[in-house]
């Protein structure tokens, strides 16, 4: 069967999907990146291929997420796109009339306003990651609760306690205080959900006109407590797509399909033997060519350099391109 492969390498999770030629999801894989994107890409690719019956033929590859360039090097992507565009394309193909997309991932949170099927405005969190998945992850582990059970347990709360959502550090001290006062853990959890939503709306959603239909996607959408908190504040239903955690990857696959359809060329996909038949390693060094001291990353496949990045002057990048040409 022919498929389009979509890959989203994020800070916390790495997601892979295969779409068939009619844009139906044939397989999806959600992995924790665990600080090793190279391993995650190999494993994710193997798993997603194993999830469909019969031999897998890839007709196009799209990558997105903060690790999109790494995935591009390893897989040979046809399209390398930023997360905003990928998420918007995915949400739009599922729910064409969508007007607001809330996306909360591990390190990023974004709001995308759609008008007539195109991105009209967007915002991302700035330097602070307080209102994101990693914040929730951290607080869950403080309460020694499995992040997967977080939402369901939070919903058992009768009265959420108020927790400062402005900053992760303040939230934590607030939470400890409330614990010592003897509040039930469920109430604290629901309070955390509300704090995250408040933080999101005040920071990322600041000044944006949130109109229905609202779609909520990204890893944090798995948390039913957050969904409820959003609905309570916004006063409108919040839809969670069935494959909310891999929407970025779905968007990347759709973009790859669009690209292949428009340029009529063959995919640049590297093939399974390239990916599995070699050892990918990455190494970084501080370039001493100028006082900028760029941290240059080198990706190698079996001791052969295949990519450099991080150099502001592009000295390493171009030297490799010259060598390969």
């Amino acid at each position: 069967m022919y498929y389009y492969l979509g890959v989203d390498i994020g800070s916390v999770s790495s997601n892979f999907v295969l779409l068939d030629s009619r844009r139906r999801l044939s397989a999806k894989v959600y992995l924790r990146t665990q600080g090793n994107p190279v391993q995650a890409i190999k494993e994710g690719f193997a798993q997603v291929c194993a999830a469909v019956p019969g031999p897998v033929k890839i007709k196009g590859v799209g990558t997105t997420g903060s690790g999109r360039h790494l995935a591009d090097i390893m897989l040979g992507a046809d399209v390398v796109k930023n997360e905003i565009t990928a998420h918007a394309v995915a949400a739009c193909s599922l729910i064409p009339e969508v007007r607001t997309i809330i996306e909360i991932g591990g390190q990023d949170s974004k709001i995308i306003l759609m008008r007539d099927g195109i991105v009209n405005d967007f915002a991302m969190n700035t330097v602070c990651a307080a209102g994101t998945g990693s914040f929730l992850d951290q607080q869950a582990s403080r309460l020694s609760i499995n992040i997967e059970d977080f939402g369901v347990r939070a919903l058992k709360s009768n009265k959420a306690v108020r927790i400062a959502g402005r900053c992760g550090v303040f939230a934590e001290s607030d939470m400890i205080h409330k614990q010592q006062m003897g509040y039930p853990v469920e109430d604290i959890m629901m309070g955390l959900c509300e704090a995250l939503v408040r933080n999101y709306l005040n920071n990322v959603g600041k000044g944006k006109k949130i109109e229905a239909p609202v779609v909520f996607q990204g890893g944090v959408a798995a948390n039913i407590g957050i969904k409820e908190a959003f609905e309570k504040v916004l006063g409108t239903a919040v839809q969670i797509p069935p494959h909310h955690e891999v929407m970025g990857a779905i968007g990347a696959a759709i973009l790859a399909e669009e690209m292949m359809a428009s340029n009529g060329q063959l995919t640049t996909f590297n093939g399974e033997t390239y990916i599995n038949g070699g050892e990918f390693t990455s190494r970084s060094h501080e370039c001493s060519g100028c006082p900028n001291l760029c941290e240059v990353v080198c990706i190698k496949r079996d001791n052969q350099a295949i990519a450099y990045w991080g150099d502001r002057c592009k000295k390493w990048e171009t030297s490799l391109a010259a060598r390969l040409a």
């Binding site: 796109k81 930023n82 997360e83 905003i84 565009t85 099927g117 195109i118 991105v119 991302m124």
Partner: peptide, 21 residues
């Protein structure tokens, strides 16, 4: 720099898609 690049790329994508429409 990656965060800045993502935002800039997305911003330009948006402007181009808006214009196409």
């Amino acid at each position: 720099e990656a965060g800045m690049m993502t935002r800039l790329e997305a911003f330009c994508d948006m402007l181009r898609r808006r214009r196409r429409v």
